Amino acid sequence: RTSMTEEYRVPDGMVGLIIGRGGEQINKIQQDSGCKVQISPDSGGLPERSVSLTGAPESVQKAKMMLDDIVSR
C-alpha cells in the first residue's frame, strides 16, 4: 500500500477544536481515518496553520473530510 504525505491548511483559530480536550479529537481523527495527523506548532502569525497528513490516499481523504467537518461547524 502506498503511503503519501499531503500538506493541508486549517484556520489557526480552529486548531484547539481539531486537537480537542487532551488530544481527544485529533486521536479520533487518526483512529477513524487511519491517517497520521501532524499540526505544525506555530502558524507564524498567519491566519492558517499547516497540517501534514500521512497515510494511504483514502486515509488522507477521510482525514481531510473529518477536518473540514470540524472547521465548518
Results as ranks from 00 to 15, higher is better:
residue 1 R to Q: 14
residue 1 R to L: 10
residue 1 R to H: 05
residue 2 T to W: 02
residue 2 T to L: 10
residue 2 T to N: 15
residue 2 T to G: 11
residue 3 S to E: 15
residue 3 S to W: 14
residue 3 S to A: 14
residue 4 M to T: 11
residue 4 M to F: 14
residue 4 M to P: 04
residue 4 M to V: 10
residue 4 M to Y: 13
residue 5 T to M: 10
residue 5 T to N: 07
residue 5 T to W: 03
residue 6 E to N: 05
residue 6 E to S: 12
residue 6 E to T: 15
residue 7 E to S: 10
residue 7 E to K: 09
residue 8 Y to V: 11
residue 9 R to E: 09
residue 10 V to G: 03
residue 10 V to K: 02
residue 11 P to D: 08
residue 11 P to E: 06
residue 12 D to G: 11
residue 12 D to S: 15
residue 13 G to T: 14
residue 13 G to Q: 15
residue 13 G to H: 15
residue 14 M to S: 06
residue 15 V to W: 10
residue 15 V to G: 05
residue 15 V to A: 11
residue 16 G to W: 06
residue 16 G to T: 09
residue 16 G to R: 10
residue 16 G to I: 00
residue 16 G to S: 10
residue 17 L to D: 15
residue 18 I to D: 04
residue 18 I to G: 04
residue 18 I to H: 03
residue 18 I to F: 08
residue 19 I to Y: 13
residue 19 I to C: 09
residue 19 I to S: 08
residue 19 I to H: 07
residue 20 G to K: 03
residue 20 G to S: 05
residue 20 G to T: 02
residue 20 G to N: 04
residue 20 G to L: 00
residue 20 G to Y: 00
residue 20 G to C: 00
residue 20 G to A: 04
residue 21 R to Q: 12
residue 21 R to G: 11
residue 21 R to T: 13
residue 21 R to P: 13
residue 23 G to P: 04
residue 23 G to Y: 04
residue 23 G to Q: 08
residue 24 E to F: 12
residue 25 Q to N: 14
residue 25 Q to E: 13
residue 26 I to T: 03
residue 26 I to R: 02
residue 26 I to E: 01
residue 26 I to P: 02
residue 26 I to N: 01
residue 26 I to H: 03
residue 27 N to P: 03
residue 27 N to W: 06
residue 28 K to I: 05
residue 28 K to S: 05
residue 29 I to M: 02
residue 29 I to C: 00
residue 30 Q to W: 03
residue 30 Q to G: 05
residue 31 Q to N: 12
residue 31 Q to P: 00
residue 31 Q to R: 10
residue 32 D to A: 13
residue 32 D to C: 08
residue 32 D to S: 11
residue 33 S to W: 00
residue 33 S to V: 01
residue 33 S to H: 01
residue 33 S to K: 00
residue 34 G to F: 00
residue 34 G to I: 00
residue 34 G to C: 04
residue 34 G to D: 05
residue 34 G to M: 04
residue 35 C to M: 00
residue 35 C to A: 12
residue 35 C to D: 02
residue 35 C to E: 02
residue 35 C to P: 02
residue 35 C to H: 00
residue 35 C to G: 01
residue 35 C to F: 00
residue 35 C to I: 01
residue 36 K to P: 00
residue 36 K to H: 11
residue 36 K to I: 09
residue 38 Q to I: 11
residue 38 Q to Y: 14
residue 38 Q to P: 01
residue 38 Q to N: 12
residue 39 I to A: 03
residue 40 S to H: 10
residue 40 S to Q: 13
residue 40 S to V: 14
residue 40 S to I: 10
residue 40 S to K: 13
residue 40 S to R: 12
residue 41 P to M: 10
residue 41 P to K: 15
residue 42 D to K: 12
residue 42 D to M: 07
residue 42 D to W: 06
residue 42 D to G: 09
residue 42 D to A: 13
residue 42 D to F: 07
residue 42 D to P: 13
residue 43 S to W: 06
residue 43 S to Y: 06
residue 44 G to W: 04
residue 44 G to E: 13
residue 45 G to E: 11
residue 45 G to W: 04
residue 46 L to E: 11
residue 46 L to M: 12
residue 46 L to V: 09
residue 47 P to N: 08
residue 47 P to M: 13
residue 47 P to I: 07
residue 47 P to K: 12
residue 48 E to N: 07
residue 48 E to S: 12
residue 48 E to W: 12
residue 48 E to C: 07
residue 48 E to V: 09
residue 49 R to N: 09
residue 49 R to M: 08
residue 50 S to M: 08
residue 50 S to G: 10
residue 50 S to H: 14
residue 50 S to W: 08
residue 51 V to Y: 03
residue 51 V to A: 03
residue 51 V to T: 01
residue 52 S to Q: 13
residue 52 S to R: 13
residue 52 S to P: 00
residue 53 L to G: 01
residue 53 L to F: 03
residue 53 L to S: 01
residue 53 L to M: 05
residue 54 T to Q: 07
residue 54 T to R: 05
residue 54 T to I: 06
residue 54 T to H: 10
residue 54 T to G: 02
residue 54 T to M: 07
residue 55 G to E: 00
residue 55 G to Q: 00
residue 55 G to I: 00
residue 55 G to N: 00
residue 56 A to E: 13
residue 56 A to T: 15
residue 56 A to W: 05
residue 57 P to C: 03
residue 57 P to D: 02
residue 57 P to I: 05
residue 57 P to S: 05
residue 57 P to M: 06
residue 58 E to L: 05
residue 58 E to T: 07
residue 59 S to D: 13
residue 59 S to N: 11
residue 60 V to R: 12
residue 60 V to L: 06
residue 61 Q to N: 14
residue 61 Q to E: 13
residue 61 Q to I: 11
residue 62 K to C: 05
residue 62 K to Y: 05
residue 62 K to T: 06
residue 63 A to G: 03
residue 63 A to K: 01
residue 63 A to D: 01
residue 64 K to S: 02
residue 64 K to A: 02
residue 64 K to E: 02
residue 64 K to N: 01
residue 65 M to K: 15
residue 66 M to Y: 04
residue 66 M to N: 01
residue 66 M to E: 03
residue 66 M to I: 05
residue 66 M to T: 01
residue 67 L to N: 02
residue 67 L to P: 02
residue 67 L to S: 02
residue 67 L to Q: 02
residue 68 D to T: 05
residue 70 I to W: 04
residue 70 I to H: 02
residue 70 I to L: 14
residue 70 I to F: 05
residue 70 I to C: 08
residue 70 I to K: 04
residue 71 V to E: 03
residue 71 V to C: 11
residue 71 V to K: 07
residue 72 S to K: 11
residue 72 S to M: 12
residue 72 S to C: 08
residue 72 S to H: 14
residue 72 S to F: 07
residue 73 R to I: 14
residue 73 R to P: 15
residue 73 R to N: 08
residue 73 R to C: 15
residue 73 R to F: 07
